[in-house]
């Protein structure tokens, strides 16, 4: 096995273990998988085996959990993971159009990563920001309401978001 937590990751792992009763170590599984995703980029089979060994669990149990939850990426994702909410409040505010616009601008389909490894486009379910629809989550940040596509087909708010990310300036702060 070649994977290991970094020094800082190891510290965090120990602090995770401290949150649960000693005879219930398995409770640390969800946070440890989150940690593994941060440390290794995504949750590969190898990462699952490593987590299993650290928590003394059979790999099959880790596989079951890692595949049940959608936030564990079983494949590598781009530097910016754009997750468009397509649940009902965002849907009536134009989420499907937003997905189509992003597909066209990024030249990928949902679920895919751009050739330069910068963007992965995904669909998400309600992100509990329904008063700001249509909206999306970029890595750990929410964008806030992205307005609507104009009649001439342009979408300045979305273009500004992509430009800002490409320039390494992160998600523009919402007013």
């Amino acid at each position: 096995m070649t994977l290991h937590f970094s020094e800082q990751g190891e510290q965090e792992f120990q602090s995770i273990l401290g949150r649960y009763p000693e005879d219930h170590r398995r409770a640390a599984l969800l946070p440890t998988l989150h940690l593994a995703q941060r440390e290794f980029g995504y949750v590969s089979l190898e990462a699952m085996e490593y987590v299993a060994s650290r928590l003394s669990l059979p790999t099959s149990k880790v596989l079951h959990v890692a595949t049940f939850y959608t936030m564990y990426n079983k494949r590598p994702v781009g530097r910016y993971h754009l997750q468009v909410c397509k649940s009902i409040s965002c849907a009536v505010m134009g989420a499907y159009g937003l997905l189509e616009y992003l597909e066209a601008r990024l030249e990928v389909e949902r679920g895919e990563t751009t050739g330069d490894g910068l963007f992965t486009l995904s669909e998400a379910e309600c992100l509990a920001a329904c008063d700001k629809g249509p909206m999306l989550q970029c890595n750990e940040d929410y964008t806030g309401c992205l307005g609507a596509r104009r009649e001439d087909g342009t979408w300045p708010e979305v273009d500004a978001l992509l430009d800002s990310l490409r320039a390494g300036r992160g998600v523009p702060v919402q007013g």
Binding site: L29, L30, H34, V65, F68, Y69, T70, M71
Partner: peptide, 23 residues
């Protein structure tokens, strides 16, 4: 304790399962 993307974990017994490290 952070969830990991599953609406059903809002149901209280599913939430307890998730806290215990299960699906």
């Amino acid at each position: 304790h952070m969830g990991a993307g599953a609406y059903i974990c809002g149901e209280e017994t599913a939430l307890i399962e998730a806290l215990e490290g299960k699906a």
